[in-house]
Design a protein around this nucleic acid. Structure first.
Lengths: 342, 342
DNA sequence: ATCCTCCATGTAATCGATTCCACGAGGAGG
DNA sequence: CCTCCTCGTGGAATCGATTACATGGAGGAT
C-alpha cells in the first residue's frame, strides 16, 4: 500500500507538501497541489489512519458500549448514533456487553486502548472498575439511556414517569387492580427507576406493589418468561404484567402461550420500549415509546461537544404511552360519537 | 496517559525490555520482569494500540459491513461474529450499509483506512468499486450471506433451496396455487437466488411464476408493504405471499392489516429468515430459518484462516422450514389420534 | 538599491510502540 | 587461561503521518 513518501516521490515534492495538500493547508502553490493530487490519484493513495492518529492523538472515533445488540431498542439507538456521528465526521465502534459487566469492562478497556476520542455508554451495572477509571481519567464520556449516579458525566435519556402514570391510569380505567412488574436489574438505573415510577403511579390510586408482584428480570427474554411463570404460580396472580423492556415482554408472551392462556383475557401485558412488531403480535401490545433516534443524536452531540471543548449538556426527553389491545378493550367513552367498530 | 517510556523509567530499564516483558519474549530476567510489571501496575499503564498497530502493521481488528442493523437477522449475525472474533483475539468494527451501496463503500473505505486485518462483507449490491478494489488489492475478505460472483473470495452462507422446496410443498398441500414472492434487489445474490429457487420449486408442481407475482423489494419493511399492496390490487391476487426476508414480511403484514384483511384466510404469508417474534405474531408466521450463529462463526474462522496464512474455506449450511399457522391450518393427517383442539 | 515581509517549500523531530543489532557478563569446554 | 556461546540488556531504526522551524525567492516600500 502506497505511503505518503511514495506520493511525495511521484509528485516530486516533499512529504510535508503532500501532507499540506491533504489537510488543505493554505500555503501550497497551485502547481504543487495539482501534482500531488495527480500522484494521489495515480497511486490510489489513502492516508493511513493509524499513523495519523498516532501523531495527532485523535482517532475521530467514538466508542459505543450497549447492553445488548439483540435488543431492538439498542440497535435503533446504535443506528442513530452512527448516523449522527458520521454526519459530524466521526466513526463509531460498537461494543456489545450482553448485559454482562465483565464483558462491558472488556469493551471499555479495548476501546480505550484504541484511543477512541470519546465513549458513549449504557452501563450494565452500577459502576464497574473500568468505567470508574475511565471517568476519573477524564475520558470524554456520555451516558445514554442508563447512567451511574454520582459521576460528573452528562446523561441523555428518556423520562418515562409521565408515560408510566398514563399507563397505570389506562390500566385502572380498564378495571385492573392487581398489577405486577417485571423489573430490570436493580443495579441499572432503568431497572430501578421504572419500578419506582410504577409504584408511585400505583400509589396515586391507592394500589400497593407487593414484593411478590415485582419480578426480577435482567432485560433478557428468558428472565421475562421465568418471572411470568412465577406470577402465574401465585395463589393470587396479577391481572396485568408490565415488562420493563421489550425482550422481557417477549418472554412473558412465551410463558403465557406455554400455559395455553390468552392475553389480555387471562393476563394483560404492557411493555416499556415500543417496537414495530408490537403492532402485529397477538394481541397488539400496549407500550411506552421512547424517542430513540433523538436520544442517539443528542448523545452524540453532547459527546462531541465535550470532545471538542464545548460544554456538554444532559438531555432528558419524554416517553409516551401507545395504547393497543394487550391490556383489554379500550374504553370507548372518550369518543362516544363513533359507533362503528372495526 | 503513561507511555512505555514512563514505565521504562519507573522500572529502571530500557523501553526494549518493557516491550519484551509485555510481549512475553523469553529472554528477560525474572528480576527485570517483576520490576516492569510493578511499574505497569503503579502507572496503570496500557499499551497504545495505535502505536503498536503502526509498527506491527496489524490491528487485530476485523471489519464487518452488514446491509442493515435494524434487521434482526443481521444483528444476530453480528453478535455471533463478534463473539467468535473475540474468542480468537480480534475485535470487530461494524459498518451499517442500510442497503445503500454508497454507504457501504464509505464504510469499506473507512475500515481499510484504519487498516483492519480483514473484512467480512454482506454486499448490498453486485460490486461497488470499493469492494472490487479491496478484493483486487488482496485485502483478506470473506463474504457472508450474500456474495459477489466472479471474485475469488470465500463465501459463507445458507442454502435455502431445499427449504424453499419444502415450503412450496407445504403450500401446495394446503391447496394454494397462486403463489407470489416479494424479492430482494436483483443485484444481491440472496435477492435473485431466492426467486430462482422459488420458481424452480413451483415448476415441480407445474405452477408458473408470472412477473406480476414477483414483487420488487429491497429487504426493507416499506418495500414489503408496497409490494403487497400491489398484489392485492391485482385482478387476480395471489393466495400466498412469500417474503424474501423478515422485514418485508413485516411490511406485508402492515399492508394486510391496513386493508382489514386477515392472514391466512385472505392472504397466506411466509418469510425467509426466522425471528423470535414470528412465534407471537397474529398468526404465527411460517418461516425458513437459517443457522445464523453458525454462519457468523464459520465466516470469522474462514477470515482468520486467511489472515493468518492458512487456506480459507467456503461454507454452505442448510436452512430449514419452520411451519406455523400463517399459511393455513396444518394438515392434521400425521397425528390422527389427538382429537382435542384448543 | 536596500530592507522587510510574505509565501512556498523542505528538513527533521515527534507520536509510542517493536525489533534488529551490538555488547558485556558469565559459564562451559578445550 | 583462552575461546566461544548464550543470555539479558540497551541503543537506535522504523512504521506513516503532522508540524515547528529554517530557508530562499519574489515583491513592495522607502
Amino acid at each position: 500500500m502506497a505511503s505518503i513518501k511514495d506520493v511525495a516521490a511521484e509528485a516530486g515534492v516533499s512529504v510535508a507538501t503532500v501532507s499540506r495538500v491533504l489537510n488543505d493547508h493554505p500555503s501550497v502553490s497551485d502547481d504543487a497541489r495539482t501534482r500531488v493530487l495527480a500522484a494521489v490519484e495515480a497511486l490510489d493513495y489513502r492516508p493511513n489512519a493509524v499513523a495519523r492518529s498516532l501523531r495527532t492523538d485523535q482517532t475521530r472515533t467514538l466508542g459505543l458500549v450497549i447492553s445488548d445488540v439483540l435488543n431492538p431498542y439498542f440497535t435503533e439507538l446504535a443506528r442513530s448514533v452512527e448516523e449522527e456521528a458520521r454526519a459530524l465526521g466521526y466513526s463509531v465502534i460498537i461494543g456489545n456487553a450482553d448485559e454482562r459487566p465483565e464483558l462491558q469492562d472488556h469493551h471499555v478497556r479495548t476501546l480505550l486502548d484504541r484511543r477512541i476520542d470519546g465513549l458513549l455508554l449504557s452501563p450494565t451495572d452500577g459502576g464497574s472498575p473500568g468505567i470508574l477509571d475511565a471517568a476519573r481519567a477524564g475520558t470524554p464520556m456520555v451516558f445514554v439511556d442508563r447512567w451511574i449516579p454520582g459521576l460528573d458525566v452528562p446523561v441523555v435519556r428518556a423520562d418515562g414517569r409521565a408515560a408510566i402514570r398514563d399507563l397505570v391510569a389506562h390500566l385502572y380505567g380498564l378495571g385492573h387492580r392487581r398489577l405486577a412488574i417485571i423489573a430490570g436489574p436493580a443495579a441499572t438505573t432503568t431497572g430501578s427507576e421504572r419500578v419506582a415510577a410504577f409504584r408511585d403511579a400505583l400509589a396515586e390510586y391507592g394500589i400497593p406493589l407487593p414484593d411478590a408482584y415485582i419480578g426480577e428480570g435482567d432485560f433478557q427474554a428468558e428472565s421475562g418468561r421465568r418471572a411470568t411463570e412465577g406470577f402465574l404460580d401465585l395463589p393470587e396472580p396479577p391481572e396485568v404484567v408490565f415488562a420493563a423492556d421489550n425482550l422481557m415482554a417477549l418472554g412473558a408472551l412465551d410463558a403465557v402461550r406455554a400455559r395455553g392462556l390468552r392475553v389480555p383475557e387471562d393476563l394483560a401485558l404492557a411493555a416499556f420500549d415500543d417496537i414495530r412488531w408490537f403492532v402485529h403480535t397477538d394481541p397488539p401490545i400496549t407500550a411506552i415509546a421512547q424517542p430513540t433516534p433523538e436520544l442517539g443524536r443528542a448523545a452524540v452531540r453532547a459527546l462531541v461537544d465535550r470532545i471538542e471543548g464545548r460544554v456538554p449538556e444532559s438531555v432528558t426527553l419524554p416517553a409516551r404511552l401507545v395504547v393497543r389491545r394487550s391490556c383489554g378493550e379500550t374504553n370507548p367513552s372518550p369518543s362516544p360519537v363513533r359507533r362503528s367498530k372495526s
